[in-house]
Simulated scan of single mutants.
Amino acid sequence: MSRVSGMFNESDLLMRYPEVAAIVRDNPSWVTGGYRLNKIFYACHAVSQKIKI
């Protein structure tokens, strides 16, 4: 995932996906421990899918 997520800028992703930015702000431990951009990119991708059940 690093190859794809590395093509994006964290601040751009968080600006485009305020839902993810709020989660990252409220739960910073969820994106610590390495691979921060991968985690943020994956969360933005999941939000972008808007899967309806």
Rank of each mutant, 00 (worst) to 15 (best):
P28E: 10
N38F: 00
Y17F: 15
G6M: 06
I51S: 10
E10K: 13
D26F: 06
P28M: 11
A43V: 00
T32N: 09
Y17N: 01
Y35L: 07
V20Q: 02
D26L: 14
V31D: 04
S2W: 06
A43N: 02
S5M: 08
H45Q: 06
F8E: 05
Y42L: 09
R16L: 14
K39W: 05
Q49H: 12
D12N: 12
I23T: 11
V24A: 14
M7R: 11
D26C: 08
A46C: 08
F8Q: 04
C44E: 05
A43P: 00
K50G: 05
R36V: 11
E19V: 02
F8M: 07
V31I: 15
H45R: 05
V20M: 04
V31H: 01
I53S: 09
V20T: 07
N9P: 00
R25S: 15
R25I: 03
E19S: 10
E19F: 00
K52Y: 10
M15K: 15
Y42D: 03
G6L: 10
S29M: 08
I53W: 09
S29K: 11
W30H: 03
E19G: 14
A43C: 00
G34T: 15
I40T: 01
A21F: 03
L37D: 00
V20K: 01
S11D: 15
K39M: 07
V31A: 10
M15D: 15
Y17S: 04
K50T: 05
W30D: 00
P28C: 13
R36P: 13
K50E: 13
V24W: 09
K52V: 13
R25T: 14
G33C: 03
I23F: 04
L13Y: 01
E10W: 01
L13P: 01
M7Y: 06
F8V: 04
I40L: 02
Y35H: 07
Y42T: 06
G6T: 06
N27E: 12
F8P: 03
R3F: 05
K52E: 12
N27P: 01
E19K: 05
A21W: 03
R3P: 01
Y35K: 10
K39V: 04
K52L: 10
V31K: 04
F41A: 08
C44Y: 02
G6C: 07
G34V: 11
K52H: 10
N9V: 14
N9S: 13
V4C: 07
N38T: 07
M15I: 07
A43M: 14
T32G: 07
I40M: 04
E10Y: 10
C44K: 03
Y35D: 10
A43G: 02
D12V: 12
S11L: 12
V47S: 02
